[in-house]
Amino acid sequence: MELLSSSKAFGGQQRVYRHDSSACACPMNFAVYLPHQSEDGPVPVLWYLSGLTCTHQNAVDKGEYRAAAAANGIAIICPDTSPRGEAVPDEPENWQFGSGAGFYLDATQQPYAKNYRMESYVLHELPELVAKELPLDMSRQGIFGHSMGGHGAITLALKHPERYRSVSAFAPIAQPSTAGWSRPAFEKYLGPDEASWRPYDSTALIADGHRVKELLVDQGTADGFLQEGLRPWLLEVACVSAGIPLELTMREGYDHSYNFVSTFMAQHIAWHAERLKAA
């Protein structure tokens, strides 16, 4: 890991690293906040997955998570949202596909299968790397995210409940297999067989028997993507049918921006902290 930057905040360290990724076949950057408690020993880990068009940096600049992370003694890791580089296939004119839009899946279609392996990166490669290099308690991990990252967080937690003790989301894409802004990306990454999309769709995973203990979701009522892209009521129906406790709060007047995310960030971190610190 190459340290690109480090800055003290709330007694801890906000860092950005770069490393060569075998999963994505390119260099990848990620951010990590280490609270001051990590100086005395390993601390719990909370993964934050960002949304479309974002990098690791947007949460660092706008997420306002450090005070709550320091207060609760939790490290927060922000991976990038996709592979990047001149050799990585991309559609620069399309903000819903390619660079910044990896959807936290492992692509199977060419020419994307070589680089767009974000599920493997977030689930295996990056955790294995940070576990060796940083004072983290990998037996206590949680995951959350925003929009596309909320989708990624929920799907990963559903498939790996033994890994993640807690999961929450801000304005997640509840059913990406049918949403207009994600279907085209799924077809390009995964091919036309929609059965292969099910492992990356929260509602399909729940229908197929995957479970988490509980789920926390916040959604703004003034979100411009609410009706066509996010549709949290589909997730609510799936959770009710499966008996999954879902705390879905519709936040009056809030939109899709980081003004919304940062407003409720501390509440989410405290919620995760209760579960990550439990025996």
Rank of each mutant, 00 (worst) to 15 (best):
N94Y: 02
V122G: 01
P79W: 00
N58M: 13
S5I: 02
P79C: 00
E252M: 12
A278S: 15
L156N: 04
V88N: 07
E162W: 04
N94G: 02
L205C: 10
F10D: 08
E64K: 13
A171H: 06
Q219H: 13
L216E: 04
A242S: 12
A270Q: 13
G41N: 12
Y17S: 02
G220T: 04
K8H: 09
I206R: 08
A67Q: 15
V167Q: 05
T263A: 14
V261K: 05
H124Y: 11
G142M: 04
G243W: 10
K277M: 08
Q13F: 08
N29H: 14
G209Q: 09
D20N: 13
L136K: 11
H151V: 00
D61N: 13
N72S: 10
S50V: 07
G149N: 07
S22I: 06
L190A: 03
G145P: 05
L190G: 03
Q219A: 06
S5F: 10
H160C: 02
N72I: 01
Y17F: 15
L3T: 13
A75T: 10
R231I: 00
P42S: 15
A270M: 01
S6K: 10
N29M: 12
R275K: 15
N259L: 13
L134M: 14
L3M: 13
Y254E: 12
T178H: 01
T155Q: 09
Q109Y: 01
S196E: 13
Q110P: 01
V88A: 09
M28D: 09
Q37W: 07
E236T: 01
S139M: 07
Y112H: 12
Y116I: 06
A169T: 03
